[in-house]
Amino acid sequence: MKKRVGVFVCDCGTNIASVVDTEKVAETAKKIPGVAFATTYKYMCSDPGQELLRTAIQEHKLEQVVVASCSPRMHEKTFRKAVEAGGINGYLFEMVNIREQDSWVHHDRGQATQKAIDLVRMAVSKVLHNKPLQISSIPVRKKAMVIGGGIAGMQAALDIAEAGHQVVLVEKEASIGGKMTQLDKTFPTMDCAA
């Protein structure tokens, strides 16, 4: 596989840029072996940000992408889609967390910038080992089983059945209703439980 990594450093408004020198991160990233392109942008997750990513992939013939922004738990899927829209496999992409795990927890600009650079270097070296992965699919049997016939089970079974799907409701006692049928009136409305 060719090594042409694109690095995109997000300012996140001032969330990242106020602590991390994103320009310096991008400039340093350009010197990392394998990196063909590096830039910064105010909001990478925004529409123009994603557009920037897509066009850069095509213009610079990028083969791998690294986005340094917020936590991957937040936007990994967003960028994976954008990378795919740019024409390369979504798994040839890594995210660097320089917000939650850098700019938001450190205040020393020098140290935080150095950390961001290290993390970008880490992601670049990882992404060079990434392989394209394919999402496969499995069939779904459109029938549900609900185990337990108390209020919870009955409500779930009814809702699924009302949506037009088959439901098997299994109850260990000889009657459904569960503990609720043993109750008298219920708070706060004092209506009957059955």
Partner: peptide, 28 residues
């Protein structure tokens, strides 16, 4: 409760216990 018993899409199996589950999402 009666709504559950009468619903055409619900099969009620009472006085019963689940003893074994195999398979995976979509195919249990």
């Amino acid at each position: 409760m009666v709504a559950v018993a009468q619903h055409p899409n619900i099969e009620l199996i009472t006085y019963a216990e689940v003893t074994e589950v195999s398979g995976y999402i979509g195919n249990f």
